[in-house]
Structures are given as structure tokens and as C-alpha cells.
Simulated assay, not measured.
Amino acid sequence: MSVSLYYSARRVLPLTEAEAAELEHIVTAHRESFPYADEESLYLYGDGGGEPGEIVTGSTKLPPQLERVMPVIAHVLESVTELRRALSNAEWRVHMDDLDLPWDEDEGYALPGI
């Protein structure tokens, strides 16, 4: 059984060129520092998910090895936190399958209770 993290942002206005460049910078930096070359990393689907108002959509399939799950989750959530801070004027949703992950202004995204 596979579990994935999903992330999306919505707003009325499309991304500006400057915002798109900032998001690309964050994604590139994330991929360069990702701890496992053989695991799925932060992945954005391109220009939204096709839904009206979606400006960012993406997902990351979590690894099946238990010892790798937490480092991957921590790394991806840190990156999604950076993405959200870069696009703070959008409505974000981050979830792991059916579990919505809460946003904390100071800490960003994290798994509840960890």
C-alpha cells in the first residue's frame, strides 16, 4: 500500500513570472538537498492541476522503507512550507492521503504530534 503527500494552492490570480521563478528556485534547491536519490522528491505538476484557480499542485509518494519515511516527510514538508511562504496570498491544502496537515505560522507544516 502506498501513501503520498499532496499539496496545492488556489487563488483567483495566476502566478506572476517572478512567483514562478521563486517556486522553481525552491524546487531546485529542494531536489539538490534531498537525502535519497532513489526516492520520489517534491514534485509539482506544472501549471496547476487543471481545476479553476489552482496555481500549484503536486505530490510525493512516500518510500516503503520505514527508516526513510520520516526524513522524506520532514524534507518535503519543509519545502512545501517554503512554497507557501513564497505564495502567502493563496489558499493552501497539504494532506497525506485523507489526513489534512495543519499550518502553523511559526513552524510551518509538520505531522501532528511529531
Rank of each mutant, 00 (worst) to 15 (best):
residue 62 L to S: 03
residue 86 A to C: 14
residue 25 H to M: 09
residue 59 S to K: 09
residue 113 G to V: 01
residue 108 G to A: 07
residue 2 S to G: 03
residue 28 T to F: 01
residue 76 V to C: 02
residue 105 E to V: 06
residue 73 I to V: 11
residue 107 E to G: 07
residue 106 D to F: 02
residue 69 V to G: 00
residue 104 D to M: 06
residue 75 H to L: 04
residue 7 Y to W: 14
residue 101 L to F: 01
residue 67 E to A: 13
residue 112 P to A: 13
residue 13 L to Y: 07
residue 27 V to Y: 05
residue 19 E to S: 06
residue 99 L to Y: 15
residue 98 D to Q: 07
residue 77 L to M: 04
residue 60 T to F: 02
residue 96 M to K: 06
residue 113 G to M: 00
residue 96 M to N: 02
residue 20 A to N: 12
residue 70 M to A: 15
residue 44 L to R: 10
residue 23 L to V: 10
residue 44 L to C: 09
residue 75 H to E: 11
residue 46 G to M: 06
residue 78 E to L: 10
residue 85 R to Q: 13
residue 7 Y to D: 12
residue 87 L to A: 07
residue 113 G to I: 00
residue 13 L to G: 02
residue 46 G to P: 03
residue 104 D to I: 04
residue 79 S to E: 15
residue 101 L to S: 04
residue 49 G to T: 13
residue 14 P to C: 12
residue 84 R to G: 08
residue 73 I to Q: 06
residue 114 I to R: 10
residue 3 V to L: 04
residue 110 A to M: 06
residue 45 Y to T: 14
residue 3 V to W: 00
residue 110 A to L: 11
residue 2 S to C: 01
residue 95 H to V: 00
residue 59 S to W: 11
residue 34 F to Y: 14
residue 48 G to P: 04
residue 18 A to F: 04
residue 52 P to K: 04
residue 109 Y to A: 09
residue 25 H to Q: 11
residue 54 E to C: 15
residue 72 V to C: 08
residue 32 E to S: 12
residue 34 F to N: 08
residue 110 A to K: 10
residue 9 A to S: 06
residue 94 V to L: 07
residue 75 H to M: 06
residue 8 S to P: 00
residue 107 E to D: 12
residue 3 V to T: 09
residue 33 S to I: 11
residue 114 I to S: 12
residue 6 Y to D: 11
residue 101 L to T: 01
residue 68 R to W: 00
residue 15 L to Q: 10
residue 87 L to T: 06
residue 35 P to G: 09
residue 76 V to I: 10
residue 15 L to W: 11
residue 33 S to Y: 11
residue 111 L to A: 05
residue 42 L to W: 11
residue 51 E to R: 09
residue 103 W to R: 04
residue 45 Y to G: 14
residue 31 R to Y: 08
residue 9 A to I: 03
residue 25 H to T: 12
residue 68 R to T: 00
residue 22 E to H: 09
residue 96 M to D: 00
residue 86 A to P: 06
residue 106 D to R: 10
residue 48 G to A: 06
residue 64 P to M: 08
residue 97 D to Y: 12
residue 9 A to K: 03
residue 91 E to F: 10
residue 102 P to R: 04
residue 23 L to D: 04
residue 12 V to T: 14
residue 67 E to P: 03
residue 99 L to F: 15
residue 26 I to G: 09
residue 98 D to H: 05
residue 61 K to M: 11
residue 100 D to R: 05
residue 33 S to A: 15
residue 30 H to R: 06
